[in-house]
């Protein structure tokens, strides 16, 4: 019998209150749309990061507006600014305190490579101390660039084998 169902949205009467999906899809869907950032604002990039959080660019559209200043509650560390060697230990410790799964965005030239600070005091790229998922170019990057980085990270998380990782953990 050909169904005459014209429902476009989920209708519990028709579906019998059951949704069939893959665990990966559900877990990744949840993770991508509630990625709470740890704002590691260390220099001028932090100002752009604030711009991303404010109404004009509005990172809330991607579910990442909840800037968590406690690493225990954060999923994604956004390293926004110049990391000095003196600060590097603090960055690493905060990364260690974040609960998994966790991701890192290196925002701007300084966090990605040391930027123009080719000097004795500056860590030459935050990837020397923490694993970076997305690098953002710019000095500082435009807010759109950071939003693009977040979308790239969401795409990456959507491809993760989350259920397998959870079961094997």
């Amino acid at each position: 019998m050909v169904s005459t169902n014209t429902e476009l949205a989920y209708n519990s009467k028709i579906e019998g209150e059951v949704i069939v999906s893959r665990a990966d899809a559900v877990i990744n869907w949840i993770r991508t749309n509630s990625m709470w950032p740890m704002p590691m604002g260390l220099a001028c990039c932090a100002i752009e990061l604030m711009g991303v959080g404010a109404s004009r660019f509005d990172i809330a559209r991607f579910g990442a507006e909840v800037m968590r200043f406690s690493p225990r509650q954060a999923d994604c560390m956004i390293v926004a600014g110049t990391v000095t060697y003196k600060m590097a230990s603090a960055v690493r410790r905060i990364y260690d305190q974040m609960s998994g799964p966790k991701w890192v965005i290196a925002m701007g030239a300084c966090a990605s490579s040391g930027g123009m600070y080719r000097s004795y005091a500056t860590l030459q790229g935050v990837d020397r101390i923490v694993p970076v998922d997305v690098y953002v170019s710019g000095c500082p990057p435009r807010p759109e660039a950071l939003l693009d980085a977040l979308m790239k990270l969401q795409d990456k998380v959507k491809r993760e084998r989350s259920a397998k990782n959870l079961l094997s953990a």
């Binding site: 230990s89 690493r92 410790r93 040391g114 004795y120 020397r128």
Partner: peptide, 24 residues
């Protein structure tokens, strides 16, 4: 200006990351 190679200030972080202060 580039600096001289030395250990990181935090020995634990240095051990966890294997990173040093390098000449830029």
């Amino acid at each position: 200006l580039a600096g001289i190679e030395t250990p990181l200030p935090d020995a634990e972080v240095a051990a966890a990351t294997g990173t040093k202060v390098i000449a830029a």
